[in-house]
């Protein structure tokens, strides 16, 4: 299903690069590698990649700088590779324009899923405007009519819940940080009010999930934000 696509792996650990090169290569990706920030910048200039896997801790600088440089000129998907316990770092990168993140150690299935979602969002949405009618998993959101259905059945949502679900469906499969969600639904003055978000997410789950304590779709990314689970099959 995957056509050859140049992926730039920016990672200082040689074994990690080897794993990514062979695994992604086996799935039809053309992989380029950079071990330092300098190499990465040069590689981006020489051959703009279709997607970047970025480890933030590089020997010659912060991967965030590369991300910010990239974002000034392009919307190339960037997926952050980071260790557990570094949630603040991940949030900073996501708020600075990274598309998603993976916590090391990760499996190849997870990586391919993230890549698939990131590429779909680039090729699908041509611009920032979201389509009138969107679907993801069992959900359909009609912004024109202000209607939501789950497996075809209508569900009544409050305006806040509607907006929250709509933005998650629009970015289905991608993580959205607390800040991004708060800014979108409540406005820029509310970005610190994480408690609002949690309460409304809880009510949304009660309306949409079969078992709100074990959400199948509205997944918590602890310390980071929320994600509407990607509905497309997990095969590559």
């Amino acid at each position: 299903m995957t056509a050859a696509a140049p992926v730039l792996v920016v990672e200082d650990d040689a074994q990690m690069r080897r794993f990514l090169r062979s695994s992604l290569g086996a799935h039809g990706f053309e992989v380029r590698e950079a071990a330092t920030l300098g190499e990465a910048s040069a590689a981006v200039r020489a051959h703009p990649p279709e997607l970047v896997l970025l480890d933030l801790g590089l020997p010659d600088g912060d991967g965030l700088d590369l991300l910010r440089d990239l974002r000034m000129t392009s919307r190339i998907p960037v997926i952050i590779l980071s260790a557990r316990g570094r949630e603040a770092e991940k949030v900073t990168a996501l708020d600075a324009g990274a598309d998603d993140y993976l916590t090391k150690p990760f499996g190849i299935g997870e990586l391919l899923a993230r890549i698939r979602v990131a590429r779909r969002h680039v090729s699908g949405a041509g611009g920032p405007a979201a389509p009138e009618v969107m679907g993801a998993g069992p959900f359909r959101v009609d912004r024109g009519r202000h209607e939501v259905t789950v497996d075809g059945g209508p569900v009544h949502l409050t305006p806040i819940e509607f907006e929250l679900l709509a933005v998650l469906v629009q970015h289905a499969g991608r993580v959205l940080t607390h800040r991004q969600l708060l800014r979108h639904v409540w406005g820029p003055e509310a970005v610190g009010e994480t408690h609002y978000l949690r309460v409304h997410m809880a009510t949304l789950r009660r309306k949409l999930e079969r078992d709100p304590a074990r959400p199948q779709w509205l997944v918590t990314e602890p310390g980071v934000g929320y994600r509407l689970r990607d509905a497309s099959p997990a095969t590559d």
């Binding site: 912004r143 409050t158 305006p159 907006e163 709509a166 979108h184 406005g187 003055e189 009010e193």
Partner: peptide, 17 residues
């Protein structure tokens, strides 16, 4: 607070708090 009426559309997604 549960928020006011729905934001008019996705052109201005931020609902007032």
């Amino acid at each position: 607070a549960l928020g006011p009426a729905a934001p008019a559309g996705h052109a201005q997604p931020a609902a007032a708090l």
